[in-house]
């Protein structure tokens, strides 16, 4: 039984729809027009790469998928849950199945690296033995063993990103949202991160990459979209 199944009681089958955004309008009421008839379907094992300039709505897209913001019109469904205001339990359940890096995702300043990485497992109530085993695996995989007891304020930008990747993967979260995956990273780390993303995609996880420009590395089963004038092209 996979960790995702144990933690979330939900294991995406190949090609199963993970996130579905249909005819979404956002900001129209405020004459901002962030999204106009936005449509995006993301399936398990697939990757959606969304490119766009600053202010194009990439962060708003993350907000929609995590229940931080809500569409003025249209449908946003993640893991079969319709994300609407006041559906706190559904939103929390969805958030636990999302691994996030960059953008609105950050680290908890008062927690150590190890505590930050293990936090998704703490809130799902996984046993201490399994949690520690997974934590050790993540710390090793992302070369963070020596930093386990450090606080985020003492980390470099690269370490910061690596901790977020480790946290986004510790529970095999079925959906990974990565805002600017290579921002501030050197070439070697970027290559390592993409190697990790390829593995994640091949293991059946759905990936949503938000970046200014199309990434230099290829990802399996990926589609590239450009966000412009509130729609995806």
């Amino acid at each position: 039984m996979s960790t995702a199944n144990v933690l979330f009681g939900w294991q995406p089958m190949a090609d199963e729809i993970v996130a579905d955004i249909q005819n979404v309008y956002l900001g129209a009421a405020r004459n901002e027009g962030i999204f106009r008839n936005l449509n995006l379907t993301l399936k398990a094992g697939h990757t959606a790469i969304v490119t766009g300039g600053p202010g194009s709505g990439k962060t708003s897209l993350t907000a929609l998928l995590t229940g931080v913001g809500f569409a003025d019109e249209g449908l946003v469904e993640v893991f079969g849950e319709s994300l609407r205001p006041r559906r706190i339990w559904a939103i929390n359940r969805v958030r636990r199945m999302i691994g996030g890096v960059g953008g609105i995702f950050g680290l908890v300043p008062s927690m150590t690296v190890a505590e930050n990485i293990a936090f998704p497992l703490v809130i799902t109530g996984l046993s201490k033995r399994r949690r520690q085993a997974k934590l050790l695996k993540m710390l090793t995989e992302f070369s963070l063993l020596k930093k386990a007891g450090d606080y985020p304020r003492t980390l470099t930008r690269v370490e910061h990103t690596l901790v977020q990747f480790a946290r986004a993967s510790i529970g095999d979260q079925p959906l990974l949202i990565i805002d600017e995956p290579s921002a501030g990273l050197d070439q070697a780390t970027t290559a390592r991160i993409f190697e990790f993303l390829i593995k994640a995609s091949l293991s059946g996880r759905a990936l949503l990459l938000l970046c200014s420009d199309a990434p230099a590395h290829d990802l399996p089963n990926s589609d590239i979209y450009h966000i412009s004038n509130g729609t995806l092209e």
Partner: peptide
């Protein structure tokens, strides 16, 4: 002083009561 941390924990799916 811990607002940021709380927001992050909420974003990761931590419940209100928790």
């Amino acid at each position: 002083a811990r607002t940021e941390g709380f927001q992050q924990m909420r974003l990761l799916g931590a419940g209100r009561l928790f």
